[in-house]
Computed example of a mutant assay.
Amino acid sequence: MTSPRRRGTESSKTRFLLLDTAERLMLDEGYAAVGIRRVAREADVTPALVNYYFPSLDELFLAVLRRRAEQEFALQSRALESDQPLRALWKYSSHPAGATLMMEFTALSNHRKVIRQELADYAERFRNAQIESLTGYLEERGIDADDLHPLAILVVISAISRIFVMERAMGLTTGHAETLDLIERSLLQIDGPPAPPEKAK
Rank of each mutant, 00 (worst) to 15 (best):
E70L: 09
A177C: 03
F105A: 03
E81F: 06
Q130W: 03
R162V: 13
A88P: 12
M170F: 11
P194A: 09
R24N: 06
E29N: 10
S161K: 09
G35L: 00
L62Y: 04
K199N: 08
G35D: 04
H95D: 13
D147L: 06
R7M: 07
T179K: 12
E10G: 00
D83G: 05
I115H: 04
L134H: 06
K91N: 13
T46M: 04
L180V: 11
L187P: 12
F16K: 15
A123Y: 13
T100E: 12
T100W: 09
S94F: 13
Y122L: 07
H176Q: 13
L65Q: 08
A69C: 02
R127E: 12
S3K: 15
G30E: 01
S56H: 01
E124D: 14
V114W: 01
L119M: 09
L57H: 04
F164V: 14
A195Q: 09
M102S: 14
G171W: 02
K91Y: 02
N110T: 14
F73G: 06
A63L: 02
F61Q: 05
S12G: 02
P85Y: 06
R67A: 02
P196G: 01
F126Q: 06
L49R: 15
E42F: 03
E178R: 11
L27Q: 04
M170I: 01
F164R: 15
E42M: 04
L138D: 08
A69T: 01
F126G: 10
Y122F: 12
S186K: 04
G98E: 10
E198R: 04
G192Q: 08
G98L: 00
P197N: 04
R37A: 07
W90V: 11
H149A: 05
R78Y: 12
E23C: 04
I131Q: 15
D83M: 03
R162H: 07
I190A: 10
D181Y: 14
V45G: 05
A48C: 03
T21V: 08
T179G: 10
M166R: 15
A99N: 03
L60P: 00
R6W: 08
Q84W: 10
D121I: 05
P85L: 00
A99G: 09
L60C: 00
L62K: 01
R162F: 03
L188G: 15
R68S: 05
V34W: 00
V156R: 07
A79H: 07
D20P: 02
D58E: 15
A22N: 00
L172N: 12
P55E: 07
R162C: 10
P197Y: 01
A195G: 13
V39D: 05
E70T: 09
M170R: 15
L80M: 08
P193E: 06
S56P: 03
P96Y: 03
T179F: 14
T14Y: 02
P96W: 04
R112Y: 07
L172Y: 11
I131G: 05
D28G: 05
A129P: 03
E132I: 11
R168G: 07
H111G: 13
A152M: 11
I183A: 12
